[in-house]
């Protein structure tokens, strides 16, 4: 029955009494994450834009990770993925995540390669 909801988030650390309070709880959490994102986007703290980790600014890592966190809670709690059978969950999430990661990896590497060729006017690496 669709009426049963799993009411715990954060791996069970936060349990809600009813589905409605859980919805408001998730909303508060998403709002906090968004406020953090916007604040960082306006302030752009220097130590986050100077430091790089795996060729990307620390600030951008934070933005992307926070985005994925938000996406998780929207899918799991607003779209009720938490309550679906694991078969449906995997069919949807794994397919999407795998294909999107592959697409992004391929296109970003290609884009960077073209940038280097434009900049240096010679082939960067020859297969």
């Amino acid at each position: 029955m669709a009426h049963e909801h799993k009411l715990a988030i954060f791996r069970g650390t936060l349990k809600f009494k009813s589905n409605v309070t859980k919805i408001w709880g998730v909303f508060v959490f998403l709002s906090i994450v968004t406020i953090i994102e916007v604040a960082l986007g306006i302030l752009k703290p220097e130590f986050l834009t100077e430091t790089r980790f795996l060729a990307m600014k620390l600030l951008n890592w934070i933005f992307i990770i926070l985005t994925l966190v938000k996406a998780y809670y929207i899918t799991w709690d607003f779209m009720h993925m938490r309550d679906e059978k694991s078969g449906l969950r995997r069919a949807v999430v794994w397919t999407g995540v795998f294909l999107i990661c592959y697409l992004i990896l391929i296109l970003l590497i290609e884009g960077d390669y073209i940038y280097e060729v434009y900049k240096n006017n010679y082939v960067k690496f020859d297969f």
């Binding site: 999407g96 294909l99 999107i100 697409l103 992004i104 296109l107 970003l108 290609e110 884009g111 960077d112 073209i114 940038y115 434009y118």
Partner: peptide
């Protein structure tokens, strides 16, 4: 994702 990845591609191309 196709759109956003294409955006990333062009952005990396003219980074």
């Amino acid at each position: 994702s196709g759109f956003v990845a294409a955006y990333g591609f062009s952005r990396f191309k003219f980074i």
